[in-house]
């Protein structure tokens, strides 16, 4: 093997090792940092461990919003079939309303209440989060033109 070829081979091997190592790291980091999306029906069906962070989406049930002490708020997210109580202590996005679509990030506590750390901002009243549309379609509550 000429020195030039040997250098190229070393370079190619180093590249492959670095690439594989990098890819492994990325996949590992991704595994820890992805948030799955569940609808209230998914939560009723699956057994999601308390403390696991995920996103939940559905409609804010009518007449379910209750104000607690300070900025604390409680409400229920529903997709028509199942309902999940939510607790949140923070500022609500401008377009948070009863009967409207909502996406929250957080985790379940032992009693099955969703402890939200973030209610995602929605930019547009006409806009419905596609995850929510999906969840509503699966529970058969989605009306076209909604």
């Amino acid at each position: 093997m000429t020195p030039k070829k040997r250098r190229r081979l070393t370079f190619a091997l180093a590249l492959i090792v670095a690439g594989a190592g990098g890819a492994g790291l990325v996949v590992y980091a991704l595994k820890d940092n992805v948030l799955y999306f569940y609808s209230p029906s998914d939560i009723a069906k699956k057994h999601i461990r308390a403390g696991t962070a995920f996103r939940i989406g559905g409609l804010v049930e009518k007449h379910s919003v209750q104000h607690g002490k300070g900025a604390a708020i409680g409400f229920v997210i529903t997709d028509g079939d199942s309902r999940v109580p939510v607790r949140y202590d923070g500022v609500l996005p401008a377009l948070f309303r009863e009967g409207q679509g909502v996406v929250a990030v957080g985790s379940l506590d032992e009693r099955g209440t969703f402890d939200a750390s973030e209610i995602l901002a929605k930019h547009d009243e006409r806009y419905m989060p596609p995850d929510v549309v999906d969840a509503l379609k699966r529970s058969g509550r989605w009306k076209e033109g909604q």
Binding site: L30, D32, N33, L35, Y36, F37, R55
Partner: peptide, 9 residues
């Protein structure tokens, strides 16, 4: 599969 990748990643 619906998921999102968080800022920590």
């Amino acid at each position: 599969v619906r998921l999102s990748v968080g800022a920590p990643y």
